[in-house]
Simulated scan of single mutants.
Amino acid sequence: MKIVASYNVKGGVGKTTAAVNLAYLSARQGSRTLLWDLDPQGAATFLFRIKPRVKGGSGKLVRGERPIDAALKGTDFTGLDLLPADFTYRNMDLDLARAHPKAKKAARALSRLLDDLAHDYDVVFLDTPPSLSLVSENVLHAADVVLVPIIPTVLALRTYDQLAEFVAGFDRDRPALHAFFSMADRRKALHREILATLPRERDGISPTAIPALSVIEQMAVHRAPLPVYAPRSPATRAYQSLWTELVGLLGVEQAGATPQR
Score class of each variant (00 low, 15 high):
1 M>Q: 04
1 M>K: 09
3 I>E: 04
3 I>C: 06
4 V>M: 10
4 V>E: 08
5 A>P: 11
5 A>I: 09
6 S>R: 05
8 N>P: 07
9 V>G: 13
11 G>I: 12
12 G>N: 02
13 V>D: 03
14 G>H: 13
14 G>L: 12
16 T>R: 00
20 V>K: 09
20 V>Q: 11
23 A>H: 01
28 R>L: 13
28 R>S: 13
30 G>S: 12
32 R>T: 07
34 L>W: 10
36 W>S: 12
42 G>H: 01
42 G>K: 01
50 I>F: 05
52 P>S: 05
52 P>G: 03
52 P>C: 07
55 K>Y: 12
55 K>W: 08
58 S>L: 06
60 K>N: 15
61 L>H: 12
69 D>Y: 12
69 D>K: 07
70 A>G: 00
71 A>G: 00
71 A>T: 01
72 L>A: 11
82 L>F: 07
83 L>F: 14
91 N>S: 06
93 D>H: 09
96 L>S: 08
99 A>W: 00
99 A>C: 03
102 K>W: 05
105 K>H: 02
105 K>F: 00
106 A>N: 04
106 A>K: 09
111 S>T: 12
113 L>H: 14
113 L>A: 13
124 V>W: 01
125 F>N: 02
128 T>H: 08
129 P>F: 00
132 L>E: 11
132 L>R: 10
132 L>H: 04
133 S>G: 13
135 V>N: 04
136 S>N: 09
138 N>T: 10
140 L>I: 13
142 A>F: 01
144 D>Y: 01
145 V>W: 03
148 V>S: 00
149 P>A: 03
150 I>Q: 01
151 I>T: 10
152 P>D: 00
154 V>F: 13
159 T>K: 02
161 D>F: 09
162 Q>A: 10
163 L>K: 03
164 A>H: 02
164 A>M: 04
170 F>W: 11
171 D>A: 10
172 R>Q: 09
172 R>C: 05
173 D>G: 01
178 H>I: 00
180 F>Q: 06
184 A>D: 06
187 R>P: 04
187 R>N: 08
190 L>Y: 10
194 I>F: 05
194 I>C: 11
195 L>N: 07
195 L>K: 01
197 T>N: 12
198 L>S: 02
200 R>N: 14
201 E>N: 12
201 E>Q: 15
202 R>C: 08
203 D>P: 09
204 G>D: 00
205 I>K: 06
212 A>D: 15
212 A>L: 14
221 V>Q: 09
223 R>I: 05
223 R>N: 07
224 A>I: 08
225 P>S: 02
225 P>W: 06
228 V>D: 09
229 Y>C: 08
230 A>G: 10
232 R>P: 08
236 T>Q: 03
236 T>K: 07
237 R>Y: 09
237 R>E: 13
238 A>F: 05
244 T>P: 04
246 L>G: 09
248 G>K: 06
248 G>F: 01
251 G>E: 06
251 G>S: 07
252 V>P: 04
252 V>A: 03
254 Q>C: 14
257 A>S: 14
258 T>N: 08
260 Q>K: 10
